[in-house]
């Protein structure tokens, strides 16, 4: 199954004599994306269309949608940590029915393929969201398996391969579109988790969600966030995410979408070399609302610098350095 979104490669920048254009397209498990750049779930909204040419992105990704309305976590939900941020937003959602009625349209109008991120507090909930959105205008689902699972005492789904398998297979069965599975940063078993997702029918895995963390205010003797704990993201997690992408790409036969601390075309190159087929940009959007368009614009020059005229030729070509 191939959903072709880009009929022709996009041409960027001034064409050089040797490389008149750079082919920025990538094949992501049945999707052809015009380029590998998309936002990370929760770090993008149609509001950004005021500030950057969203139609130049490879795809857009919605905030995670739940079956029912939920308020999200206590405040404060956000703070800064050295070279990164910590959030405990807690994924507020207006529920799938409301998303279908009034949320999705804003994304669908953006003229870029829409990936809908779906969440659930139980297996049934994931399935329900997939079912209710199956016939809507979108390019793919991304299953956020890092949600606390009520059937497993609040553990995230991907700590339990059987449970994850069941959720993924059920969503795949309900969807005619590609299904990405977004993994949480399990430092030891990411390869197994990627393989589990693949075996359950996922067409790609996203690696990874934010890293569990905490910030403490010593003067007040309190946690900085209302929820106590949160997820760390931004530049500080880039080396951690790169390693996980590398491990997942080694283990799985399906494409990997890299995510964590990306904010420049050179970061994209690093993730592609480590084995990612596409990338997601989250935290960098906050300080630089135009960053994704800038990265897309810089991809051709980056590719030429690395000696390829097809971006996809970079994927997984990293060699582990031997002594010079």
């Amino acid at each position: 199954m191939t959903t072709s979104i880009a009929d022709a490669p996009r041409e960027h920048g001034a064409p050089g004599p040797a490389a008149p254009w750079v082919d920025t397209r990538v094949e992501l498990g049945g999707l052809t994306l015009a380029n590998p750049v998309m936002p990370a779930s929760g770090c993008f909204g149609p509001e950004l269309a005021d500030l950057l040419p969203v139609e130049t992105l490879g795809a857009v990704v919605t905030k995670t949608v739940f079956a029912s309305a939920r308020p999200g976590n206590a405040t404060h939900r956000i703070t800064e940590v050295p070279n990164g941020m910590l959030n405990s937003v807690g994924i507020p959602s207006r529920g799938v029915a409301e998303f279908r009625r009034s949320g999705l349209g804003g994304y669908a109008a953006l003229d870029a393929p829409v990936v809908i991120s779906i969440g659930g507090l139980s297996t049934q909930e994931y399935w329900r969201v997939a079912e209710e959105l199956a016939d809507t205008e979108h390019a793919a689902f991304e299953i956020n398996v890092s949600c606390p699972n009520l059937e497993r005492g609040g553990q995230t789904l991907d700590t339990d391969p059987r449970a994850m398998s069941e959720v993924v297979a059920g969503v795949v069965a309900r969807s005619a579109k590609p299904v990405l599975v977004k993994l949480s940063p399990q430092l030891q078993t990411i390869g197994e988790a990627a393989k589990t997702a693949e075996d359950a029918g996922a067409t790609a895995v996203t690696v990874c969600n934010s890293f569990p963390g905490m910030a403490v205010n010593p003067d007040r003797r309190t946690s900085e966030l209302g929820n106590g704990m949160g997820g760390v993201s931004g530049p500080v997690v880039k080396p951690l995410a790169l390693r996980l992408v590398w491990l997942a790409a080694q283990a799985a036969g399906i494409p990997v979408v890299g995510c964590g601390g990306i904010r420049a075309a050179s970061d994209v190159a690093e993730f592609l070399l480590a084995g990612a087929t596409a990338v997601q940009i989250g935290t960098a959007n906050f300080a630089q609302p135009y960053v994704m368009a800038k990265v897309v614009e810089e991809l051709p020059a980056m590719a030429r610098r690395l000696g390829v005229d097809r971006i996809s030729d970079l994927i997984g070509t990293l060699t582990i350095r031997a002594e010079d």
């Binding site: 909204g45 149609p46 999200g72 939900r77 937003v89 207006r94 906050f286």
Partner: peptide
């Protein structure tokens, strides 16, 4: 005031309180 990340309404970092149990503030 509230702690913010995006300033535009998409990150949901800046809720004006803890909501009503179902809906976000």
């Amino acid at each position: 005031e509230a702690h913010m990340a995006c300033g535009l309404g998409y990150c949901h970092g800046c809720a004006a309180g803890d909501g009503d149990g179902t809906h976000e503030a």
